[in-house]
Write a protein that binds this DNA or RNA. Structure first.
Lengths: 234, 234
DNA sequence: CGTCCATTTGATCAGGGTCAAGACGAGTGG
DNA sequence: CCACTCGTCTTGACCCTGATCAAATGGACG
């Protein structure tokens, strides 16, 4: 619980242009936690006692519907905030956050937020900028779901994932956490069957390589052509 | 441009628990504008010079895609903020805002936001609460698009509209601004043809009455049954 | 009275969901 | 080290929802 150093968070976007002293004050009130793969960081409808910063790993944010569907809202990468319900006046978390791999997170009690917001206006502004871009992302997804074919949505989803979590390998850009066909289906509003067919077709065309819970994009450029292909409705 | 009184905004959610003096200071820096029906309040990609409060009327917020699609993000009702890009660190508006009927709005220059945020913490917190619920709405729509049939999405859309803009009449709850089949289609990611067929069917069943750009929900309860009907995928 | 736009309705058809079955690979326990 | 099991992935066949194409109807307004 001790020995947290400001070097953990210095350099991250949300802490941009803050003094070392402020970073110390912030980090000093955090506790760090390890979350094992497939374990929740926080859960939908739970009391939002803390907000979090992902230091290492990848977290999947999923909303469950009453009728048993799961829709993946986004993946969180290292350096990103999550569970910031308190900054938006909510008292419960709106979704489940599941560790896609073993993770390390920092956690602050939610009741610190009002103090942080007034004491560190830069931090506050950067946080709301994050919120703004997530709102933007959500609207983009609504638009994709409304106007694009499944093939384009899946292509866009893969491109987004390699942009935010792509790791260069000799074969191409690998998504560096386990990602099943089912996971992709939950991101794009389709079924694992359709995703499987699409990935198989793309593999035949040499656009990607894939295996069990693993996807490598070999030809991002050509995949982008698929994603932007105009065969819309309307 | 003068004669703006705090009574215009007192009592609105976003100005909850603020003093008369603060309301005066805020309203004193606004200018009021009339926007004629079908005219823009602000436009996508434009420099976000101002943020707005809708005093009277209804505004449709629409995103246009490069390939000519239009997706309606939400309708704004009197008392709601809009164009608050500046509060989220954006410099341009993310969407078009079109007056669905003749409107009256208050406008503040965007550069006032940082001052407002620090001077009126209640106003700031309430604004971010609004942002939070819009993020929530956006995610709800993603989930609807991913898991529901068109019929259920259209039913949900109508129910949302009567909840936020329903006016009681002797026939039922009327959506009190012009709303075409095309408008409903743009909210739900379908076509005007499908919407027309659904509304016709519902009219035959006595759930609604409708006409040119006009929808009255006669049996909200039964419509809710349609909206919640479980015939999902997965 | 004529024009324009919103709406209705029918016919067709394909994208992709559903159902079904099997193959593959990883981890486990004997 | 091997057999077994379980979860992921693949692939085929079928069919339904809802998009597309086409055309007619009906108000509203000048």
């Amino acid at each position: 619980m001790a020995n947290l150093d400001r070097s953990l968070i210095a350099g991250l976007d949300v802490f941009e242009s803050m003094t070392a002293a402020d970073l110390d004050r912030i980090v000093g009130q955090a506790r760090s936690m390890r979350i094992a793969r497939d374990q929740p960081v926080f859960e939908q409808e739970q009391d939002a006692h803390s907000f979090f910063l992902l230091l290492d790993g990848h977290v999947r944010v999923v909303k469950s519907t009453p009728d048993g569907h799961e829709v993946t809202v986004r993946y969180i990468s290292p350096g990103e905030l999550m569970g910031i319900a308190s900054a938006l006046g909510r008292t419960t978390y709106p979704a489940n956050a599941i560790a896609a791999v073993d993770c390390v997170v920092l956690a602050w009690p939610s009741q610190l937020w009002p103090t942080f917001a007034t004491s560190f206006p830069n931090f506050s502004a950067n946080t709301y900028k994050t919120v703004g871009s997530r709102l933007q992302d959500a609207h983009t997804r609504v638009i994709e779901m409304a106007t694009e074919q499944v093939e384009q949505r899946v292509a866009h989803a893969l491109l987004k994932l390699i942009k935010q979590s792509g790791r260069k390998t000799d074969e191409g850009l690998m998504i560096d956490f386990p990602l099943s066909r089912q996971d992709i289906a939950e991101m794009t509003g389709t079924t694992l069957h359709t995703v499987s067919r699409l990935l198989s077709a793309w593999e035949d065309q040499g656009l990607i390589k894939s295996g069990r819970q693993r996807v490598v994009v070999v030809e991002p450029h050509k995949l982008l052509v698929v994603a932007e292909c105009r065969t819309p409705k309307g």
